[in-house]
Structure formats: structure tokens, C-alpha cells
């Protein structure tokens, strides 16, 4: 495909009528000379669960990392809950406060206990009292099924437990959106289920979620829309049924045939 040829832009917009919580328009990003995200148009409604799939290196992780400014983009406009993501630190802080993120490598803080991991940001950022933060932390630890681990250190927990703590840590900040960056990819097969179960519950309770994952079972059960990305662009958008029964693009079919 030559550079001059007009490329059809696939816009992944949320259905009309909903309340837009994330809007991305004309997003472009480069790592040095490498054009990693190309003309991304995407929006997410409150309460929606959007699953992003695609081969490694397709830019899907970079895309969600742009939403809370873990990566800086060069072109385009990102708005989260009405706040435009600009270089203004106050806007960035505001957006980060309202977006929870769960990482592939958990990224719990190993030098403090599970409880301290969870209450750190609510106390320091939301300025909650310690008692309130701990009460909310216990609520979410119970929700992810491991209240008895509160006073252990992350290193004493299994991978699945660590990731559930990471989810509880993000939830305790009471975010409006949750971003998941391949949350089960670093887990042993036998504990993937316990993390997915938590995510399914969360989705069914109406949490707005953007999930980068290879777990098609999860997409099928709770996904509202699936976005397929390849080589930095959105290739195809549709419902999970559309993807599993009738994918249109050759690249989508080829990718799905490898992972299903």
C-alpha cells in the first residue's frame, strides 16, 4: 500500500444515545521514527465494555496507555469524562484520578503491605481519612475474594492473588473507567480464571472497561464491542458475535484463526 493511497479510516465510535466517557479523535503517536498509532478514532460510553485485540506490536497497549498519559501522543485529541488530555498537569492528574489501570505485570509495590498498596492513593490523592480508606479497601478486597491477605506483602501472594489486589487497588480509588492492559498474560493458566471471574463481575455491575486481552471467552461473555487492531490502526470493529461468526477483514480472520 503506497503512502499516497487514501486509506479508509475505521472509526470505533460508541453507539449514539449513550453518555460518552472517553473520546479519541485522530490520535497519532510515534516512538522515534516508528509510527505506532495511526489515525485512531474511538469512543466509549459509560458502562460499556470494550475489548481490544490484535497481534503483539499492533499498538493496543500503547493506545490505552495514551488514555491516562503513561504515553504521550503527538497528534489528536483525547477527552476523558469531559476533561481534555493536554500538557496541563492538573488535567492529567484529574484524568488519572478517574481512570484505574491494571497492568500485565501487576506492578504492586513490594515494600508495603497489600492494605498499604490499596490505601496509599486514596489517602494521598483523594485525601481520605485512613479509616475510610481501609474500610473501602476491605470492601474491595472482599469483592476480589482475598480479604485475608490484607496484611501480607505482595511477594507472599500468588500471581492470581497479586493481580486481584491490583484490581482492588485501582477500584478503591473509585474510578469512572478501568483500563486493563493484558491482565492475564503473565499468569499461570490455573489462576487466569480467578482474575477473569473478578473482571466479569465488574463488567456485569456496569463498570466502564477498556480491556486489552487475548481472552476471547471474556470478550464473548461481557464484551459490548470488540476492536481489532493491527500495525497501529483499527482494522475492524463489531460485536463479539460479529467477530466470532462473521469477521469481514482478511487480517482479522487470519488473526482469529491463530488464537481461537
Amino acid at each position: 500500500m503506497s503512502a499516497t493511497e487514501a486509506v479508509p479510516r475505521v472509526a470505533a465510535h460508541a453507539p449514539e444515545g449513550g453518555e460518552r466517557i472517553i473520546t479519541i479523535d485522530g490520535l497519532n503517536k510515534w516512538f522515534g521514527d516508528f509510527h505506532v498509532l495511526k489515525d485512531i478514532d474511538l469512543s466509549v460510553n459509560r458502562g460499556e465494555v470494550v475489548v481490544v485485540i490484535g497481534p503483539s506490536g499492533s499498538g493496543k497497549s500503547t493506545l490505552i496507555r495514551c488514555v491516562n498519559r503513561l504515553e504521550e501522543h503527538q497528534e489528536g485529541v483525547i477527552t476523558v469524562d469531559g476533561t481534555p488530555l493536554t500538557d496541563d498537569v492538573r488535567n492529567i492528574d484529574l484524568i488519572r484520578r478517574e481512570t484505574g489501570m491494571v497492568f500485565q505485570q501487576f506492578n504492586l509495590f513490594p515494600h508495603i503491605t497489600v492494605m498499604e498498596n490499596i490505601t496509599l492513593a486514596p489517602i494521598r490523592v483523594r485525601k481520605w481519612k485512613k479509616s475510610k480508606a481501609e474500610e473501602r479497601a476491605m470492601y474491595f478486597l472482599e469483592k476480589v475474594g482475598i480479604p485475608e491477605q490484607a496484611h501480607k506483602y505482595p511477594g507472599q501472594l500468588s500471581g492470581g492473588q497479586q493481580q486481584r489486589v491490583a484490581i482492588a487497588r485501582a477500584l478503591t480509588m473509585e474510578p469512572k473507567v478501568m483500563l486493563f492492559d493484558e491482565p492475564t498474560s503473565a499468569l499461570d493458566p490455573e489462576v487466569i480464571g480467578e482474575v477473569l471471574q473478578v473482571m466479569v463481575t465488574l463488567a456485569k455491575e456496569g463498570m466502564t472497561m477498556v480491556v486489552v486481552t487475548h481472552e476471547m471467552g471474556f470478550a464473548r461473555e461481557v464484551g459490548d464491542r470488540v476492536i481489532f487492531m493491527d500495525a497501529g490502526q483499527i482494522v475492524e470493529v463489531g460485536t463479539p458475535e460479529h467477530f466470532f461468526e462473521n469477521p469481514q477483514e482478511e487480517r482479522t480472520r487470519s488473526f482469529l484463526s491463530k488464537i481461537l
Partner: peptide, 15 residues
């Protein structure tokens, strides 16, 4: 210290 530590803290809204 792995970069993920810094990222996780920033993502939680810490300055």
C-alpha cells in the same frame, strides 16, 4: 526499580 513501579504510582494519580 522497574519502570512499572513508577507507572503504577502515576496511574493511581500520585504526583
Amino acid at each position: 526499580i522497574p519502570n512499572g513501579q513508577r507507572e503504577a504510582a502515576r496511574a493511581l494519580g500520585l504526583s
